[in-house]
Design a protein around this nucleic acid. Sequence first.
DNA 1: TGATGATCATTA
DNA 2: TAATGATCATCA
Length: 228
Amino acid sequence: MPQRPPPPHDATELLARAEALAGHRLGDLAVWLDLDVPADLRRHKGWVGQLLELALGAESGSLAEPDFPQLGIELKSLPVDAQGRPRESTYVCTAPLEAVTRGAWEESWLARKLARVLWVPVEAEAALPLAERRIGTPLLWSPDAEEATLLRRDWEELTERICHGELAAITARFGEVLQIRPKAAHSRVLTRTVNSEGELEWVNPRGFYLRPHFTGAILRRHFDLPTA
DNA sequence: TGATGATCATTA
DNA sequence: TAATGATCATCA
């Protein structure tokens, strides 16, 4: 493998690259890419995702667009336990808090980001040193009809509440497959929203997250994994 | 033990 | 500040 591959030309090439990584350990990738493996992820929370970006040829940067803009594909690493079940929720995108108009689901930032996702499972058991964690078989996924319906339903309900200035009432308990949670370096980071009185208010930024049971169902639908 | 709310690093 | 990459830490 080249040390830092250029962007893939098409989805097939991207998937082939990801499949070539399956079974290898994070420490192997770090060597190939000439990167140091942190002792733990406490102060390097995005390290695994960025390692995969480099290994697959994604353009680095924190732009509000898919990791592979030409292909319309979003890359997501998915921390899984020994049974292949996701251990964490998956961040998708920032939740719009200020200029929220009732747009169509199809045109939403969320729907566009989730239109095509390359899921890369990565072992993530606390006892397993970072360098020894293995990369799993990747999955190039698009929502099926049922998944799209679930996502759309949650998105519409949550967006509606924000439209009504009810952000303050939204907790992570809303949403069957999708949730809104704080997304910031710390609780003092503020962004603007409009409350139910129509007044400007400063609140902690939020993001849309996929619940683990949803991403777990995606893996089970495509791979023959235990239901438990 | 799982889910929620809080937090960390980096780039533009 | 706001977007990206996420996991941490606490509590029910």
